[in-house]
């Protein structure tokens, strides 16, 4: 029982929550770049939220199934076809053996997730099924899935019908306002750099990946201005969300497969509640930043978690029949 990749897509990989707790070995957590979308796919299928999913990036695959299974597609919106008929995102879809699923062009966002009512058959490496794409280990054969490859499924069951309410489906067409708190070295930056940072609409560079999201333009009119700050930096722990300002003044947001130790000054840090949104950024996208207090950051996170917990409760309730959550 397997899924066959007639076309693999640009970077299709297996992901879960990744590998927390190994940063002191230099291993970043990795896992799904948009954890919220991954959780929603699993939630719709009635899976545990950490059940491994397929992460699809920018260009989607063409897949043939050789078994009956339920799927749910979340995250980026692609034109998605099942046996040439359009299907919806955020909805449980029943697949029959022989069905062909096609991801045609990308409409919005950057990464889509295919949740499966099954276990993807890959070894657990350092306690995770996820592919660490930058370091090349884990997942399916240590990297992105290639054309003509087959990924095997186990423990297949059929999930009940479910669909996410339209109002809850994220809209990636809107320019994101990413909320940040002060970074570890915020106070070392000149006020002009801080003002520029919050006043600038940044563009995402094509060099962005799961390691880091690079932005332009520079927030430092004269690059020499930063020498004083970075000159005295001694490398220390770095984690996803930290916004570093290298000497050219162009911000880099450390992402899920980022370095665990870094030496550039950090002006701001993306709040945990908004990290998932970074997974939907692609080259040329425009973004802005808004400063919030640590207390606000906590409240925003609690609110998002409560919503997810509420959805999960509704999914688990016995009474659900063709549930709309």
């Amino acid at each position: 029982m397997s899924i066959y990749f007639i076309r693999a897509g640009l970077q299709t990989s297996i992901q879960d929550y990744g590998r927390p707790g190994l940063m002191h070995y230099g291993i970043s957590q990795g896992g799904a770049a948009d954890l919220l979308s991954m959780k929603l796919a699993n939630l719709l299928l009635g899976n545990t939220l950490n059940n491994p999913v397929m992460e699809i990036t920018l260009t989607g695959p063409l897949i043939e199934f050789d078994c009956d299974v339920s799927i749910a597609i979340t995250g980026a919106r692609f034109k998605t076809l099942l046996n040439n008929n359009p299907i919806e995102n955020y909805k449980v879809i029943q697949i029959k053996s022989g069905d062909i699923l096609e991801f045609s062009h990308l409409l919005s966002g950057a990464r889509a997730y295919i949740g499966l009512s099954a276990t993807i058959s890959v070894p657990q490496i350092l306690n995770s099924a996820s592919t660490h794409l930058i370091s090349g280990f884990g997942g399916h054969k240590s990297g992105a899935i290639e054309q003509g490859e087959r990924v095997h499924l186990e423990n297949i069951r059929i999930a009940k019908e479910a669909q996410l309410e339209r109002e809850l489906i994220p809209n990636y067409r809107l320019r994101p306002l990413i909320r940040v708190v002060h970074g570890a070295e915020s106070q070392r930056f000149p006020q002009s750099a801080l003002d520029n940072f919050f006043a600038t609409t940044f563009q995402v560079s094509a060099q962005s990946n799961r390691m880091g999201i690079r932005l332009s333009p520079s927030i430092i009119p004269e690059p020499e201005g930063l020498e004083d700050i970075s000159g005295e930096m001694v490398s220390s722990g770095l984690y996803p969300g930290s916004i570093q300002i290298p000497s050219n003044g162009e911000p880099i947001i450390s992402f899920i497969e980022g370095q665990t130790i870094g030496g550039y000054p950090r002006l701001a840090h993306v709040i945990r509640a908004d990290l998932h949104r970074l997974g939907q950024l692609k080259a040329q996208d425009k973004i802005n930043f808004q400063l919030v207090s640590p207390a606000q950051a906590r409240l925003i996170l609690q609110k998002k978690n409560k919503l997810l917990a509420k959805l999960q409760n509704r999914m688990e309730s016995e009474a659900r029949e063709a549930l709309t959550i």
Partner: peptide, 22 residues
């Protein structure tokens, strides 16, 4: 606690803000 990253002059402690108040 999620991760404790030692470095030359610094120990960075990473935590889940759902579990801890900074």
């Amino acid at each position: 606690l999620a991760d404790l990253i030692p470095a030359y002059q610094c120990l960075t402690i990473i935590f889940d803000p759902n579990l801890f108040d900074d």
